[in-house]
Amino acid sequence: MKRTTEPEAAVACLWQEHLRAPYPAALRGAELAGTDMVLLDAHIAGCVSTWLDNGGSLDAKRLGILRGCIADLDQILPLLNESEDRRYYQRLHRLALVVSTADSESTE
Rank of each mutant, 00 (worst) to 15 (best):
Y23Q: 00
L39G: 03
S49E: 15
D74W: 04
D36Q: 13
C69N: 09
P78E: 09
L63C: 00
D72K: 13
I76G: 06
R87Y: 10
E105Y: 04
R62H: 13
D36V: 08
A25C: 07
T107S: 08
R20D: 13
G64H: 04
L73I: 10
A9C: 01
G29N: 10
P78I: 09
G64M: 01
W15N: 09
L39H: 11
S100T: 03
G56T: 02
S100N: 00
P78F: 00
L39S: 12
A30K: 13
A42I: 02
H18V: 00
H18L: 14
K2Q: 11
G64S: 07
V48W: 02
D74V: 12
I76F: 04
A42K: 07
L58W: 05
A12Q: 09
E108D: 12
L80D: 08
T4Q: 14
L27I: 05
S57K: 13
S106Q: 12
L58G: 09
E8V: 02
L32G: 06
W15L: 01
A96V: 07
E82A: 15
M37G: 06
Y23I: 04
R67C: 14
L92H: 13
G46I: 02
A21N: 09
C13P: 00
D59E: 12
S83E: 15
T50F: 05
R87L: 11
C47N: 09
K61C: 07
R3H: 11
I65H: 01
I70K: 06
V98F: 05
L97C: 14
D85W: 08
D53E: 15
I44P: 03
Q90N: 10
A10Q: 14
L40S: 01
L40N: 06
L52K: 01
R91V: 04
D85K: 00
L73E: 09
V98A: 03
L52V: 05
A10K: 12
L52R: 07
D41Q: 12
L39R: 14
V99F: 02
E6L: 15
I70N: 03
T4A: 12
R91W: 03
L92A: 12
S57P: 00
S57Y: 11
M1W: 09
E82T: 11
L80C: 09
L66P: 04
E17R: 13
A21F: 07
A21D: 11
A71E: 14
R62G: 01
S83Y: 05
A25F: 04
P78H: 04
T107M: 11
H18T: 05
L58R: 04
I76S: 08
S106P: 00
L79Y: 00
R86G: 01
T4V: 13
G64Y: 05
E82D: 15
I76C: 06
M1L: 05
E82L: 11
M1F: 05
Y89M: 03
Q75W: 07
A96K: 02
C69R: 14
D59I: 01
G55I: 01
D36H: 07
L92S: 12
L80R: 08
Y88D: 06
Y23N: 02
D103A: 12
L27D: 10
S100K: 05
R67G: 01
R91C: 10
P22K: 11
L14P: 00
L63K: 09
A25I: 07
A60W: 06
G55S: 08
E84S: 15
A26T: 12
P7N: 08
L14V: 03
H43Y: 07
A25S: 11
T101F: 01
N81A: 14
S106M: 11
L14N: 13
Y88T: 08
D59Q: 05
